[in-house]
């Protein structure tokens, strides 16, 4: 499904500020794989996700999605295969547009934007049903501007939008980090729900060791632009938070966020 081969990303190349953000990353995901990504700040987790999504170009290596080489494909074209949920709940939706318009835009991902009416009556019913599954009571507020929703509601909506027309790959960039614990739990439960129902291939960055262990079937740990540890199957199931913290200590990576979690 996803093949990242020897990916190289350098920021500010050939200047004094040159920084190798990804130094030859290899990652293979099968269809339906759910991988959690952990690592300290500056380890290259978000850079990896942004490279896969096409936000940045890369200096070397290849990215293949379902056998298609997308390394040089522009971000908006890649959106046909890849969808994202950002860390910042404000980023994933268009605030001045209502819930329906946002969903309609998402349902058009990967298709051309023609002169058909954006939200038809049939769409309205369909979207209302979908929003009901979130269990947030938003179905009665379909024509409310997204700006009036809370962060948690917006993030849940973004998740729904990202999985609306079943992308080949779902990228979650610490999508619960900015939410309060209770809301985070709820959005995480939704994530588990939707991904398992759709057998959704997913990459999820998290700073929460517990979530990293509990979610998905694979786990990778990154440090200084490289994947330094991979666990899957039995090995991942038996992991504990202490195991992971020990690994962090081994590589001399300690930061407050990790110790706190």
């Amino acid at each position: 499904m996803l093949d990242v081969q020897n990916l190289l990303k350098v920021f500010h190349p050939n200047t004094v500020n040159q920084k190798v953000a990804l130094g030859g990353v290899n990652l293979h995901l099968d269809e339906g794989d759910f991988v959690t990504v952990i690592g300290g700040n500056g380890a290259g987790k978000s850079t990896l996700l942004n490279c896969i999504a096409g936000v940045f170009g890369v200096e070397g290596g290849n990215i293949l999605i379902d056998g298609v080489d997308v390394t040089k494909m522009s971000e908006h074209k890649r959106a046909k295969f890849v969808s994202r949920v950002f860390q910042d709940p404000m980023k994933g939706t268009a605030a001045s547009m209502n819930i329906e318009d946002n969903l309609a835009l998402a349902s058009q991902r990967g298709k051309s934007h023609g002169l058909r009416w954006n939200v038809t009556k049939k769409d309205k019913e369909h979207f209302t049903e979908l929003v009901k599954t979130l269990g947030l009571g938003l179905e009665s507020r379909m024509s409310t501007k997204v700006a009036l929703l809370s962060g948690g509601q917006r993030q849940a909506l973004t998740l729904l939008m990202a999985t609306l027309n079943k992308p080949k790959l779902l990228l979650l960039d610490e999508h619960t980090a900015a939410l309060d614990p209770k809301t985070a739990e709820k959005v995480l439960a939704l994530t588990r729900d939707i991904t398992s129902r759709n057998n959704q291939t997913t990459v999820m960055i998290t700073h929460n060791m517990k979530d990293a262990i509990e979610m998905g079937n694979k786990l990778i740990m990154m440090s200084e632009g490289k994947i330094i540890y991979t666990a899957s199957g039995e090995e991942k199931r038996n992991l504990t938070v202490d195991d992971l913290l020990k690994k962090f200590r081994e590589i001399g990576q300690q930061n407050d966020r990790i110790l706190l979690s």
Binding site: E75, A94, D101
Partner: peptide
Amino acid sequence: RATGCNEEMARAQGVN
């Protein structure tokens, strides 16, 4: 409209 409101999101939704 989405481009004007949230360009990053618009691109992520496949809008050129």
